[in-house]
Design a protein around this nucleic acid. Structure first.
Lengths: 128, 128
DNA sequence: CTGGAAATGATATTGATTATCAATTTAGGA
DNA sequence: TCCTAAATTGATAATCAATATCATTTCCAG
């Protein structure tokens, strides 16, 4: 029993098929599969998929809103030259966050970390 | 020689006087000082102050855009119950970030970390 | 089947931010 | 002090992502 509509399944598959994807790209790909799909339906289903924890919405400085499939806790590196985004699962981060929660009088639900810099490829290209 | 306009100085003082402040509050306070000030002027000067590194703009999950005076590198804890924002200068974070930059093949320019959770006060209130 | 709930598509609306442009202010040299 | 060019401002229009509305369609449980 698929509790989800065709539109919903289509959108989920699209998000799952790309490491990070924005609304425009989701919309284009969804309309290729279902030409009549409405933008409102896309927003609605992205919201639903997120609240059902099938996908995650990530925000990079207001400029970018991207979706990715739920990969569990991780962080992002953004190259400010080529705008490439990489996932970071560095265990050091977890060590760090457990330190934090021990040192402060608050309980942590989740941590959102964006690391901005220059990727290896762009560093090499720039040294011309 | 103040290279800055009255509007600019007024806006800077307002931002400096509050730990974290949003556009609406800035606008209200600025209009109290300069009733004819335009919203466009506020946006323009906030942009200018940010590019001159007098203030920093922080983004909390697209919902909130806040301004704060330039306090150097730090991070934010957001209580999801009362929406209070606290600055974090934890040295562990710096240790962590230098680890990161050593372990990956990218150079870090800056790190944006938002920690979401429940503050002490709200934790106590909730245990009723 | 059938009726009510849920989801959709089309479109209008909202709200934050940016763009435009004429009018005003500012700073510096004659 | 006066004058001009550049910078800034205020008012307003335009943009754009996201949300709201609502009639229509789809989906199931009975």
């Amino acid at each position: 029993m698929s509790n989800y509509s065709r539109q919903n399944n289509t959108i989920l598959k699209i998000v799952e098929a790309h490491p990070h994807i924005n609304i425009k790209e989701i919309s284009d790909k969804a309309k290729f599969k279902i030409p009549t799909i409405s933008l409102a339906t896309i927003y609605r289903n992205l919201d639903k998929l997120e609240s059902h924890q099938k996908i995650q919405r990530i925000h990079i400085n207001r400029e970018f809103v991207l979706y990715e499939k739920n990969k569990g806790p991780h962080h992002h590196f953004i190259c400010t030259k080529c705008n490439t985004i990489s996932d970071l699962y560095d265990p050091q981060i977890n060590v760090c966050t457990s330190c934090l929660s021990g040192q402060h009088d608050f309980t942590i639900n989740h941590i959102n970390m964006n690391i901005f810099g220059t990727c290896k490829k762009c560093s090499q290209t720039l040294s011309n």
